[in-house]
Nucleic acid binder design. Sequence first.
DNA 1: GATACACCCTCAGGCGAGGTGAGAGTCAAG
DNA 2: CTTGACTCTCACCTCGCCTGAGGGTGTATC
Lengths: 273, 273
Amino acid sequence: MIKIGDFARLAQVSVVTLRHYDEIGLLKPVSIDRFTGYRYYAADQLPQLNRILALKDLGFSLAQIERLMQGGVSIEELRGMLLMKHAQAEQRLAEEQGRLSRIAARLKQIELEDSMTPYDVLLKTAPAMYIASQRVTIPTNDQVPEYLTPTIDAVYRHVQNAGGKDAGACFVIWHQSSQVLIDEVAEAAVPLERPIAPSEQVGVYELPATSVASTIHRGDYAGFAQAHAALLSAIEANGWESDGTYREVYLVFDPSDPANHVTEVQYPLRAGR
Amino acid sequence: MIKIGDFARLAQVSVVTLRHYDEIGLLKPVSIDRFTGYRYYAADQLPQLNRILALKDLGFSLAQIERLMQGGVSIEELRGMLLMKHAQAEQRLAEEQGRLSRIAARLKQIELEDSMTPYDVLLKTAPAMYIASQRVTIPTNDQVPEYLTPTIDAVYRHVQNAGGKDAGACFVIWHQSSQVLIDEVAEAAVPLERPIAPSEQVGVYELPATSVASTIHRGDYAGFAQAHAALLSAIEANGWESDGTYREVYLVFDPSDPANHVTEVQYPLRAGR
DNA sequence: GATACACCCTCAGGCGAGGTGAGAGTCAAG
DNA sequence: CTTGACTCTCACCTCGCCTGAGGGTGTATC
């Protein structure tokens, strides 16, 4: 008969942990003194506790461990659980690796600029959605507004005419890298709640979900270069790979004061993150 | 002015999360309707939220993020925090890698044996401790008890004579691999609360802390081979490296019935895990 | 026999980052 | 005026323990 403190020392766990395992029924002491409430463990509970600790280390929850220990799990089921844990561990490993390189990138950036950038790049998922869209080719970069504005308007008009409703902020898909400044192909897009009929100019299709590197820019379009620079360097630092296009999402568009604009710049990434 | 639901959709976080951030003062809406309690956010809070999410992704706690956002952190301090996060991430990465190979090892083992082994191998730390010990060379393996028992008794007698007290179970350090069965060098050791004076036969010194792969064996010493096999295969699967010795810790020693013996077998590992 | 001192007990509450559900009020469209 | 989508607060849950308060036990020493 071993008292809880000695048992805890033997297995290198805390007394609190043992009491916790008793409480949840995972490892009950072989006897409890009826009068003092003292818990007494047997030596042959050490292997049991060892098994619990080993399974915990593999990533099982205490509830799962209880099922495993009670023997209500077939070997096939156990294999399945282990395979799942394996996949989860692989995913966490990849996450941790990404985190590590992101931290390293931040550190490098501090060395270079001695400050925090105003651009925080986030990896997120652009959900799948139906969009109505129209393409336009813009000869030179300074003509962007005069070509893009009417195109966006045209798409919105078509959505209205076809009885559709927009589901969120409109955006533009640029079909070349941000370095290209002449003959840019832009696709003005409006997300839809439900698909509508297309017209000759305005196409309607489902944009598949995709991972994007994303950052948010405030104000007019003069300072965009920095946002792009931040995105590109983050993509490089993380070992991601752009698919060659990028998107501008017009979250807030205030024609009266461009300083109030809020635009999200997204770089879709090739599959496999 | 953006309602909480729309703001949540824009940033792809949950409404509950935004309310939580409001509650802890991390990101308060620019205005709250005095009568309805509705929270209203401004577009320029999106970059703030983005920064919060980016920092969270780097592994900062919400409390740390709050300090960072309040600007009460110098660039040097930030660098230090990032370095720390970097180290932590590296450690988690290593842990995750270890876990992954341990899961893979279990899976392989299931393939081979179609069952769970009774031996669960744990990585733990044998703490530093003072020990009194005496070495003995045992000619052949079947003479182990007749050589070892008196040696252990001798160490205990010396501890008593020198006024020391044992601190935990006695153990034996075997100074060669478990394959060697002739002329084995065994060191019978008793952990001490405080160092005592040595004698001619019995040495006293501090055994340094070390990582060990450990498993627990029940019963007599006939079935030890399996425990050693389990330890060796776990060490190989995890990419650990034995230092060439191993230890047997006699957690429970019941001379009247060897079936009650509980022995922990430890393989000390070379540094760097 | 008294007194240390190390143990042991139960019970309540806390951590971190939210999630869940109940019950009630609010807003915009038809 | 109703419907349905939102929003609010409040309270409790998650997971694997840890901490502390308040009180009882067990053994050794003075």
